[in-house]
Amino acid sequence: MISHLFLEQKTTLSDSVSLQTDSSGYEFLIIEHQKLNAAFALHGGHLIHFQLVGQEPLIWLSKTAIYNDQKAIRGGVPVCWPWFGAAGETLGDNLPSHGFARTSKWSVADIKESEQGLELELHLKDSAETRKLWPFEFELVLKASLTSELKLELISKNTGDKPFSYRGALHTYLNISSPEFCTVSGLNETFSNSLKNGQVTTGDGTLLINAPIDSIYNKAPESVLLDDKQFSRKLKMENSGNDSEVLWTPWISGAAAFTDMPDDGYKTMFCIESAITAKQGITVAPGQSHTLSTLIK
């Protein structure tokens, strides 16, 4: 899934993890464990690949994704933070969609390996540049547990002296065989359809992927299940710290409009996101933290 990136090894960080770069110096963490392969871009703290040995990749990555310090990567699991979608009137106009975490440089804080896989921790802290966009002090921690399951935990720590409220998402692009072979179930029956001006709709908690979808579902009562019959696998997603699940596919016209997605890219991806989308967000008091997570198994 990432062989097209043509990377060169720069530094060995552990038995299974190395820091590698492309021809422009863009940095990736490459994980080659006996039970799995994975990759992160340090730009955005962005998981771009996860694959258990002998199985199809779990995470989808666009073959035409653009890698530079200004743009979020198409695919993987972008970290949307500290807002979801537009920043909103209170923060001002012309701010980047989905926040700045997904276009900021993260650092490696910890790597722990075992026979089952590994745990990885990436950090992002406030700076003069982030405070120009969002006037708060913070430390953002992304904990990744990579075993037979994939768990991502986004921990928002308030390191300042005033409370802040945030919205965000773990914008997970799942790798699928083909839309006609996939069914999503376990969803909340109530959702807001962004393709119909946010119209609130009630369904039966089951979804077929056969048209453009951009919907915000109220938090699922338990777990969300993606049944992929052609891949012969069922992905069970358990989300916590969220208030909603966002489901998205650009479909035919949407994919064709993206310069960083192949025209047929919509056929092999589908997004199910653990998200905080309510206008008020989550308030974090000074010295406190909040965790948004997704577990896929």
Rank of each mutant, 00 (worst) to 15 (best):
L13H: 05
E32Q: 10
D15R: 02
Q230G: 02
L29S: 11
L226I: 13
T249P: 01
I272E: 07
V77A: 00
G168L: 07
T130E: 05
I59E: 03
N37M: 02
E149F: 10
K157I: 02
W248P: 00
G25E: 07
E238Q: 15
A72K: 06
S104E: 14
D204K: 07
A220Q: 09
D15H: 04
P179S: 07
V184C: 05
L195I: 04
D126C: 00
M261C: 12
H4D: 10
W60E: 06
F270Y: 06
G99E: 14
I73T: 10
K10L: 12
G287H: 10
Y217F: 08
A86N: 13
T90G: 01
F50L: 04
K229Q: 09
W106V: 08
E273T: 06
E115N: 12
V141T: 15
S293A: 12
T12I: 14
Q199R: 02
K157P: 00
D69G: 13
P82F: 09
L47D: 07
I66Q: 14
S114K: 05
N242P: 08
T202N: 15
K151A: 02
L225I: 12
I282F: 13
P250Q: 09
K105P: 00
E222V: 04
G75K: 05
H49R: 12
S156Y: 03
H290F: 07
T103H: 03
D227Q: 10
I111D: 03
G160C: 02
Q70M: 10
E115F: 11
L52K: 10
D22L: 13
I155H: 00
V53S: 12
I59P: 03
D228T: 06
Q55W: 05
P96H: 01
I282Y: 05
K219S: 10
E245R: 04
M1K: 13
A101Y: 09
I30P: 02
T159I: 00
S24V: 11
I31W: 07
P179N: 11
W134L: 05
L7I: 06
T202A: 11
A169F: 06
G186R: 06
T130M: 08
P135E: 14
M261N: 09
G168W: 07
A65W: 03
D228Y: 05
K157D: 02
L152G: 00
H43K: 15
P96C: 06
A41I: 11
T130R: 05
Q70R: 15
L226P: 06
S240L: 00
K112T: 15
V246S: 15
T291L: 04
T183E: 13
N239F: 12
T268Q: 13
Q34C: 01
K71F: 04
S127G: 09
Y173L: 03
R233E: 11
E139F: 07
H33S: 03
Q116H: 07
D15V: 00
K132C: 13
V200G: 06
H290C: 03
